[in-house]
Write a protein that binds this DNA or RNA. Structure first.
Lengths: 107, 107
DNA sequence: CACTAACGTAAGTAGCAACTAACGTACGGA
DNA sequence: TCCGTACGTTAGTTGCTACTTACGTTAGTG
C-alpha cells in the first residue's frame, strides 16, 4: 500500500491532479482539460490514484466526479516519521508553540 | 527537488537502504551485502539518494561511509501538508494533548 | 613499485510505465 | 429509439529505469 501511494505521487501529472482536486470535486473531463496529454492518459492516472486510495469517485449521470481521499497516507507519514523524526519534530515544535500561545490566550 | 525526493523513495530497494542507514553509518560494501542485486546497482541507488539530499557521504581511506540526511524532506512534508491537512491534524492533535499534559506536570 | 581492496563509472539490455489511437459502454435528451 | 456526451478500456509504441558486465580510479600494504 505504501508502495502504491509512493509510486502514485512520484508522477508529476498525478501530483498536479491531486492539487486540482484540493480545490473542489471535479469530473474526469474537467481534469483532463487542464493537461496537455490526452483524456485516456488522465483516465489511467486517475485509476492509479484510486488504486492507491488517494482519490474517490462518485457517478453522477454520465459524469464521474473525483475527490481527494486521505487513505493510504497514514502509512506514508509513519514511514517518514520512522527515520526523519527530527524533521517531524520541527513540525511538532511549531505546533507546540502554537498550542502554548493559544492556551495562554484562552485564560 | 521534491520530484527527486519522491522518485528516490518510490523505489523499494532505496527505501531499504534508508532503513539500514537509520541504524548507523555504513559503507557502500556493507550496504550492498544486504541485497541480492550487484554492488554497482547499489552504488547507483546511493547516487540517486545522494542527489535527492537524503544521504550524505564521508570518505575514510578507501571506504565511503553513507549516513542519513534529512534535507529535501521539508518540501515533502509541505507537499503532504498542503492537501492532507486532516491527516497531519491527527499528528497535531496527538502533539497538542502531549504538550498540555507536559505543561500541567511542569507546574 | 606491484598488488589488493573498495569503490565509482560506462555501456548495453530487459522490463516497466506513460502515452496515443481506436474502440466499447452507459447515460440522458429529442 | 436514435444520437451525442462522457467516460473507461484495449493494444501497441516509446522512453525511461533498474540491472548486469566490464573497466577505471584511488588508497592502503608488502
Amino acid at each position: 500500500m505504501l508502495d502504491q501511494v509512493l509510486r502514485a505521487i512520484a508522477e508529476p501529472n498525478r501530483r498536479e491532479i491531486l492539487k486540482l482536486l484540493r480545490e473542489k470535486e471535479l469530473s474526469a473531463g474537467e481534469i483532463a482539460s487542464s493537461f496537455d496529454v490526452t483524456r485516456p492518459a488522465i483516465s489511467q492516472h486517475l485509476q492509479v490514484l484510486h488504486a492507491a486510495g488517494l482519490v474517490g469517485v462518485r457517478r453522477v449521470g454520465t459524469k464521474r466526479l473525483y475527490h481527494l481521499k486521505a487513505e493510504g497516507t497514514s502509512e506514508l507519514l509513519q514511514f517518514l516519521n520512522s527515520f526523519w523524526e527530527d524533521r517531524l519534530d520541527l513540525l511538532k515544535k511549531a505546533v507546540e508553540e502554537e498550542v502554548r500561545r493559544e492556551d495562554r490566550n484562552e485564560r
